[in-house]
Write a protein that binds this DNA or RNA. Structure first.
Lengths: 339, 339
DNA sequence: CTACGTTGCTTAATCGATTAAGCAAATAAA
DNA sequence: TTTATTTGCTTAATCGATTAAGCAACGTAG
């Protein structure tokens, strides 16, 4: 069943008694090849089911037309939406993408980078794992001479292009909203400070409290991995405080959902007893009851812009590029959990 | 910053005044190269930060050492666990993997196959999208002459290796368990019949009811995409029946969780009023309250076996392989939702 | 001392597509 | 008519690693 040999340009060439070079040019619609020859070449190519050998052309051209993408996980709507839009833009420009997942693991992330460099992708677009603190493995990408673009989970030290939302401001918007509703003890179930975006959310939260002359209570600030389970665990702990919060701002929707489950199970009314806000605007936030107020991260724009930033890099060639830090304003979607 | 040129075997060769061929052999520990030369080559390779050009060696050897994997989504514990174990086995054998997601979309799945074939992977391991009915695009893989192995979501027509669990028997185990607890009206929130595994679960469910002399009530059998939202929607509908079920068997844990949320919200006691069983043994099943009884799919074994099946293929070379259909017995994990 | 095997390397071809350089014929411009 | 220009193709080199074939030097056995 499997044809012993793939057809090559040579096969087409010998069938038509022309040179392989002419065939190659015909396939690329070179202006120096007659329409007659082009038609003949394309006909024979179809007949023999010719599929170009990507390895050969990539070797010759020094370009694979592949872009590697590293994400912590693809399970959130945020990341899959980013990927979808990124892919759409890149496909249109003739690039294919290879997705790798770090599963929030530092070690896996290093291996992903190795695999992508090994495959000789033309560039890497990445969002860092939670675990990642040491970013030296990203230097490998830069020293390979291919563009590196970070999104969402970035890192200032690396000095590369970045696309993300304004996490600091988002925290402000959330706190202001809750204060407006009369909340005085706002807890924050946050991510780990070592990840820049989570640190920014925490800083924003603290500064917003200060701005509203509310006291900072360290027992109301927790750091975790922000999974659904983490949300449950941390909410349980918050409920055991002698002085319970009257609002909870979780830095992920999953954590918010976990918190909501605990609140529901304990018959604590949301929003009357405790108001709740999540982060990420995952589709389920509008489906659960009560629906969860959350921050929309403009995932489509982020995917598109990251892809465009990459394309700018390759089109400009070796010209040194000015650093692009693109920070989008996020949007608060108010739902029942904070009304 | 970026070294204008990558170091090649030639660079090492000229630095040591030996031929590139000798360098290549030295790097591969060829027995016909002296230890002295090998050491020298490796030293210089390190000095110049030599990284082999994968494209060149792949072109020459006709082998990329890459395996493409297609999964519907990586967001479930099942698929990510399968991937993890698959990758471990393949890495040990010198292969890297490229993951692509179909997002349950037929069109995306076709594109994934194209991308993988374009990248010239040495084989493809796949689990089909929900939407996929027409499997002609998989024929392309076979006609490319590289091994194709399916897991979990397979297809008999394709006549390729397959690894999965016994879905038909799993339904029997679940129904028997519920009958034992005294249930008489067992509903099934199932997947679409066109997907073989979901069809098998439905068949198993129906046959098990018959075996236990329980009537088959079509209003108790629904087909959906098995997401959390679907579970909520279908559970709502089941509650509106004049003759409510006393047990629900959902073909995914996500759907079971959705159903559980609705039951909790409606103050219907689980398991006293309605017993609930899921499928997949996702970690959250033991975290929610009540914890959800579910079927463990041996994800680790599936990943490992799929990888080993691929390795068998490539090691045996062109020798025609007898078809491997490996069906594992699944295991029922009983939790509070059915006790 | 001759014949053969082993060791340690080199030479040159190869994988398949691309492309710079070039050549002949056809066409246009002078 | 002569000189340029364009058209349509061919030749040959190239990308970098691999490998079959081969050669020279040395060791060993008879």
């Amino acid at each position: 069943m499997a044809n012993k040999k793939r057809t090559t340009l040579k096969d087409i060439a010998s069938k038509l008694n022309i040179s392989p070079a002419a065939v190659s040019k015909a396939m690329h619609n070179d202006s120096r090849i007659s329409d007659k020859t082009k038609r003949a070449v394309k006909r024979v190519a179809k007949e023999l089911d010719y599929q170009p050998n990507h390895l050969a052309s990539a070797l010759r051209k020094g370009k694979t037309n592949l872009v590697g993408v590293i994400v912590p996980r693809t399970n959130s709507n945020f990341f899959s939406s980013v990927l979808e839009n990124m892919e759409a833009v890149l496909n249109k420009a003739g690039y294919n993408i290879i997705i790798t997942q770090s599963n929030e693991s530092f070690e896996k992330e290093c291996k992903n980078i190795d695999t992508l460099l090994y495959t000789q992708v033309d560039g890497i677009i990445a969002s860092m794992a939670n675990e990642t603190v040491d970013v030296s493995h990203y230097e490998k990408i830069k020293s390979n001479g291919i563009p590196l673009i970070l999104f969402d989970r970035g890192e200032n030290d690396l000095n590369v292009d970045y696309v993300g939302i304004n996490d600091y401001d988002s925290s402000h918007v959330i706190v202001e909203h809750l204060v407006e509703k009369g909340c005085k003890r706002i807890a924050h179930i946050g991510g780990y400070r070592r990840t820049r975006i989570f640190n920014n959310r925490i800083r924003g939260y603290v500064d917003a409290l200060k701005k509203n002359k509310l006291p900072i209570d360290d027992t109301l600030i927790v750091e975790c991995s922000l999974t659904l389970e983490d949300g449950r665990i941390e909410m349980e702990k918050l409920l055991q405080l002698k002085n319970r919060p009257d609002a909870v701002y979780a830095a992920s929707d999953n954590a918010a959902l976990g918190a909501l489950q605990i609140l529901n199970e304990n018959r604590i009314h949301v929003p009357n007893d405790i108001r709740l806000v999540g982060f990420g605007n995952e589709p389920f936030t509008s489906l659960v009851s009560p629906s969860i107020t959350s921050i929309d991260q403009h995932s489509k724009d982020i995917g598109r812009i990251a892809a465009e930033t990459f394309l700018n890099h390759v089109s400009k060639g070796e010209i040194k590029q000015s650093l692009n830090k693109i920070i989008l304003d996020a949007e608060l979607i108010v739902r029942d959990s904070s009304k």
